[in-house]
């Protein structure tokens, strides 16, 4: 178990840990933005937007994340788009996670009775106002728990980036394995780090859930 404190391993470990957090946080932010836009598209009165939202979710939610990483890594350079491996990983993770965020939001929107939107519209609110002032705040209550699951999955999914040249937490495992340390000890420390991240996200969503419950 002491391997982590030998030969400067600790600083590599911390570096990988921080990189995983950075990757996850950025992807979470973009996924959230993307998810909101896609969800608005999917419930919009404009057929083209609805079609786009549905197509996005169908493609990105149903494609294995590994395949998306291959796509951004190997299909973009021939199109003369050259990204560093970190940016490519953020794009793959955001596009993928965004489709899940969209569906969670849409499910939440569908729990709000239609009469709420009708009342808003009959008062003169436009589509955007109806969604942001009336429907989404009420959808929030039912959305927070499944949204937590999506965002807890995100850092764990980000481990794939380790296979695509991003020096994050999981790639740290490869380095140590090659140096012939005990495999169980290596995975113990890595699991501990992922656990710490997951618990933190879980804590954030639990707090949110309590907050929204109190605010009715």
């Amino acid at each position: 178990m002491g391997l982590i404190f030998e030969n400067g391993n600790f600083s590599a470990f911390v570096e990988g840990f921080l990189r995983t957090i950075e990757l996850s946080a950025l992807s979470a932010l973009f996924a959230l933005l993307l998810g909101f836009v896609l969800a608005a598209f999917r419930v919009s009165p404009v057929p083209v937007l609805r079609w786009f939202g549905t197509a996005w979710v169908t493609v990105f939610r149903n494609t294995p994340l590994l395949l998306l990483f291959f796509a951004v890594t190997f299909m973009l350079p021939p199109l003369d788009v050259h990204l560093d491996s970190f940016t490519a990983a953020v794009i793959a993770l955001s596009a993928y996670t965004g489709s899940f965020v969209c569906e969670v939001l849409r499910a939440g929107i569908n729990t709000v009775p239609l009469g709420q939107a009708e009342a808003a519209r009959s008062l003169g609110m436009g589509f955007g106002q109806t969604l942001s002032l009336v429907v989404l705040p009420q959808a929030a209550r039912s959305v927070i728990s499944p949204m937590g699951s999506v965002f807890i999955a995100l850092p764990r999914n980000s481990a794939i980036a380790g296979a695509f040249n991003v020096p994050e937490l999981f790639s740290f495992q490869k380095v140590l394995s090659e140096e012939a340390y005990d495999i169980f000890a290596i995975f113990f420390w890595i699991a501990l780090a992922y656990l710490a991240i997951s618990f933190s996200i879980n804590a954030v969503f639990s707090t949110l859930e309590r907050r929204v419950a109190v605010a009715r």
Binding site: Q116, A119, Q138, R216
Partner: peptide, 19 residues
């Protein structure tokens, strides 16, 4: 939307904003 603001509507199920 502008026109709807000038036409008040009251529903069978009230539809007050519950939040």
């Amino acid at each position: 939307a502008r026109l709807r603001a000038q036409v008040g509507m009251v529903f069978q199920s009230f539809n007050l904003f519950s939040h």
